[in-house]
Write a protein that binds this DNA or RNA. Structure first.
Lengths: 226, 226
DNA sequence: TAAAATTGTAACAAATCTGTAACATTAAAA
DNA sequence: TTTTAATGTTACAGATTTGTTACAATTTTA
């Protein structure tokens, strides 16, 4: 099921732009160009998230926000306020409209997207994926699940951390010390060779008979995901 | 995807110069000429790296730096401070602004570029390749892979170090002692002739039938990559 | 609390790499 | 051409690096 986002905004170009980009990201986007319809549409469509213009011709964004946040049913919908540059940010925050985040126009789309994802992660974690893939290996960071050839694989904590580290920079060779620093993080009073043993365990877990070995040993240098 | 760099600097000539050169290197460059806009632009554009003038008409570079490093989202962006010659370097470092590197004006562009690459290599290694080529020989230092005519070649550690040393200065002739010093580094209690044997092994590995011999023997002088 | 899972280390085996010496070949000098 | 010096080649023992396993200690889960 795809995530639905509703935009209430009177400037058509902004709607067009945001809508285009969000749809490209796979969201279902609807919009209203005034506050009155905005309220109605939101109640009718019950979107997963709302982008609300601060300044609307009729209702102000704050009012809509307050109305929504008053009703139990709609209170959970995350709202991002779109504010113009001149409007004092402190004042906006002070008004306590109940909005969950603000973004100042003009904004870049990646920034907006980042904020949308952040909010969705909070309210509807199951709808926002954070999946990294490398060839036939897939790591879902939200659920901490790992798949090889779409078959789930059980990994212990350290094994998960390890593969999660390698998959950030596939193909790059890391020395045992680098791996220790990054995966064991804090207390590095651990033998270098311990890395080897965990690599071995990871290999056992992620390798399927007949398929390519994913972890390369680079003699006197370290390991890499390949 | 190309790497984006944002410059905050009030001296227009510097912006122009740096921008021109960085764009020639393939970076996407944006700029602000004062601190206020600087902060805003950085938050909006979310660049991969920031060049920050130490002295700005309004905000000081240190302040901007501190602001950015305070926010989790921006903390990871590497920052290079541009300082004027008079400013005491120790004092700058002492201020602990959180900048990742400093460079003193006037600086040479290659020097700046080297620092930029070094930082990017740390934060976004996948965006900075470190590949050296000589004719049909290619050494990828990140993955530690070596190719001849685009076919991968396996080299042992010493052979890799050797070719990696030669490729830094192709055509230059090195004596056996120089090679020992540079490739064996620390404990040079190794026979000079050992170099010959490794050269022989390297040759065997990198030579493909029918193609040019890459390592030249310079009698009574040493070897070179040719 | 008991059972299961995870973790770090040590010990040994296996694979690979290294340095050396001995001999062969080649190039320069006499 | 002969002699001499430099380099090429090879084999091999020893050193180094990595793989693998077992085990005890610790942490997590049931």
């Amino acid at each position: 099921m795809s995530v639905s986002i509703h935009i209430v905004e009177d400037e058509q170009p902004i709607i067009t732009l945001v809508k285009y980009n969000l749809e490209k990201e796979g969201y279902k986007v609807s919009s209203s160009d005034n506050g009155n319809e905005g309220i109605e549409d939101i109640k009718k469509l019950f979107p997963d998230l709302v982008l609300l213009d601060w300044m609307l011709p009729d209702f102000s964004g704050v009012e809509i926000c307050k109305i929504l946040k008053k009703e139990k049913k709609f209170k959970e919908i995350p709202i991002i306020m779109l504010t113009a540059k001149g409007e004092d940010e402190d004042k906006i925050k002070g008004l306590n409209s109940g909005a969950d985040d603000y973004i100042t126009k003009p904004f870049s789309f990646p920034e907006l997207l980042a904020r949308i994802k952040a909010l969705l992660r909070r309210s509807k974690p199951s709808l926002v994926s954070d999946i990294v893939e490398f060839e036939d290996l897939k790591v879902d960071r939200l659920t901490r699940r790992v798949f090889r050839k779409n078959k789930e694989i059980h990994l212990g904590p350290k094994e998960y951390d390890l593969i999660n580290f390698f998959i950030k920079n596939p193909k790059r060779v890391y020395s045992r010390d680098q791996i220790l620093e990054n995966v064991w993080s804090d207390n590095i009073n651990v033998e270098t060779r311990t890395v080897d043993v965990h690599i071995r365990r990871l290999r056992q877990s992620i390798n399927i008979d007949g398929f390519k070995e994913l972890i390369r040993t680079v003699r006197s240098a370290g390991y890499s995901l390949n």
